[in-house]
Amino acid sequence: MKVAMTINGTSQQHEIEPRVLLVQFIREVAGLTGTNVGCDTTSCGTCTVLLDGESVKSCTILAVQADGAQITTIEGLAEPGTLHPMQEAFRENHALQCGFCTPGMVLAAVSLLQENAHPSEQEVRSALEGNLCRCTGYHNIVKAILAAADAAEVPA
């Protein structure tokens, strides 16, 4: 069936099978491979994207369910060649090691600050419960998110 959504401001209209997952649509149909697939079971959060501004796990949504939605992936957070303040905070605070979980972490963090602009450290840690970092680099990820919250308003 025909599915149309906007990914990072660009309209994507494609004929797909209803069983295609949103993450497949993003990676394989739209060709945006910044969104990683980790566990594929709604656990690790690596495939997190923003759907109409809110963090979701794109491995557990059918692309047809996102028909008409606005999707933001890691590629769409900032203009090419620039960094979103959350990406900047991750870089400043060494909040990544292997980097595999990073796109999901950054988008989960952006969604968090939209709901809670000035979270406590505990609130940040709770909000990341759906994002796993197997390098176990959580400490600097939390630091980066708190720094981004301190620094400024974080735009979507």
């Binding site: 709604t42 959060g45 809110e54 979701v56 796990k57 557990t60 949504i61 989960a108 759906g130």
Partner: peptide, 9 residues
């Protein structure tokens, strides 16, 4: 329930 992403859906 679950995590923030799950609670959004």
């Amino acid at each position: 329930v679950g995590d923030p992403q799950i609670r959004h859906r």
